[in-house]
Amino acid sequence: MIDVLVVGIGEYVTGLAQQKAAQSDKSFGVVALSLFDMRSRGLVGNIRLAGRDASRFESVRHHFETNLKSAYTDLDTSFEAYPKSGRNDEAYKEALSDMKPGSAVMIFTPDDTHFTIARDALEAGMHVLVAKPLVKRVQEHQILMDLAAKKGLLLMLEVHKRFDPIYADAVDRIQTFGDFSYFVSYMSQPKSQLNTFAAWAGISSDISYYLNSHHVDLLCWAIGEKAKPISVYATSATGVADKKLGRKVEDTITLTVQWENIKSGALATSVHTASWIAPPSDVHSQQRFFYMGHNGEVRVDQAHRGYTVSTDTNGFQSANPLFMKYTPRDGKFAGQEGYGYKSLATFVESASALRDNPSNLAEYNRILPTIQNTLTTTRILEAGRRSLDEKRIIEL
């Protein structure tokens, strides 16, 4: 059993966007609900949530009481809140001071804050999970990588697609396809999400960092040390988000990455597109990829799993309970097999195990998406941003 601090109380954590239940596929949230269930299973002890404004916790508690506890009988949704009163952008530091070293910290905050919070958590002796993108710059990645190694702590990237059984099987098959040749991915969010992201969109981060990070990481995981990126060129589309938010914001960003297969020297190309101006559809987020190797190819549409539902309330939808299963079973939460849940549970279980067996860290750094093996993802994402800003190809 391990105590957990979650930094950030937005949609992915609580299911709330702008203090209202999110109009998305995550209206119950992912992180808090998963932790409440893990606590009922004896995996998690105390749960702390840190935000910046104490007044928001009233709506968080009301949402949990009204929605989560009405859906799942006997679910304990209690937590300790930081700040206790008023507003404090560094309330998480008070929470860290109340925790024992070796506890766990999960960071789900705007992209530009990840580095500072993760550094502070590591300095306090905590194992850390960070939402994608882990950080925005290679320099920050290397600082945290060195710090985690020095402290002997786990610093893991929360990329739940690695825990999708279909994506994971595709990656296993890709290992048998010989040299890497071509990869293309697409992921979207509806225009309505720009309201949720209004505080930071186009200011501290962009849609490539937010969404392309998923499939850039997936490709890096799939090809491992087989190939290396040698250049990145980014392009964008504009005209919707800037009008909606009143500032310069890219609607859609495409990264084109040139790769080189290390043994043969053969070239390869990957194209990663992310957008947050999609219209309403049967899914909240389109998400798919195609991979071609010299000896085989694979395509996966993660948004459509051949399972459709239609109701008077929500109309026609393509359901994906493999991510988070919110429908209760016999009045209980039954989503433990969802890959959104598994990503969090894997971190919790690994951090707990390290207290008894610190020597396992080297193995976790080999098999999990940790700070130690995701540097290439950060290199590509940062190069994409630089390419947009500098209007040129970035050599790696």
Rank of each mutant, 00 (worst) to 15 (best):
V4C: 13
I9E: 05
T14F: 01
Q19E: 15
A21T: 10
A21H: 04
A22P: 03
S24C: 06
D25M: 11
D37P: 06
L43C: 02
V44M: 08
I47S: 00
R48P: 03
R48N: 06
S55H: 02
V60W: 01
V60M: 06
H62M: 14
H62G: 08
S70Q: 13
L75A: 09
E80N: 14
P83E: 10
K84P: 00
S85I: 02
E90N: 08
E94Q: 12
G102M: 09
A104V: 07
M106E: 05
F108C: 02
F108K: 01
F115T: 00
F115L: 05
T116K: 12
R119M: 01
L122R: 02
V130G: 02
A131I: 02
A131H: 13
A131W: 04
V138W: 07
V138A: 11
Q139W: 10
Q139D: 15
Q139F: 09
H141E: 11
H141V: 07
I143C: 10
L144G: 05
M145A: 14
L147D: 04
A148I: 08
A149K: 15
A149L: 09
L155T: 01
L155G: 06
M156E: 15
R173Q: 15
F177M: 14
Y182F: 15
M187I: 15
P190V: 06
L194H: 00
A199M: 06
S205L: 00
S208L: 06
N212D: 15
N212R: 08
S213P: 03
L218A: 12
I223D: 03
G224W: 01
G224Y: 03
V232C: 10
Y233V: 14
Y233E: 15
T235N: 13
T238M: 09
A241I: 02
A241Q: 00
R247D: 07
V249R: 00
D251S: 03
I253Y: 00
V257N: 07
S270N: 11
D282C: 04
D282S: 12
H284L: 12
Q286T: 13
R288C: 11
H304Q: 12
H304F: 15
Y307F: 14
S310M: 14
T311R: 11
T311Y: 10
D312F: 14
N320K: 08
K332P: 09
F333G: 03
Q336V: 10
E337T: 10
K342L: 15
K342F: 05
A345S: 12
D356Y: 11
L368P: 04
T374V: 02
T377K: 11
T378I: 14
R379S: 14
G384T: 09
R385L: 09
E390C: 04
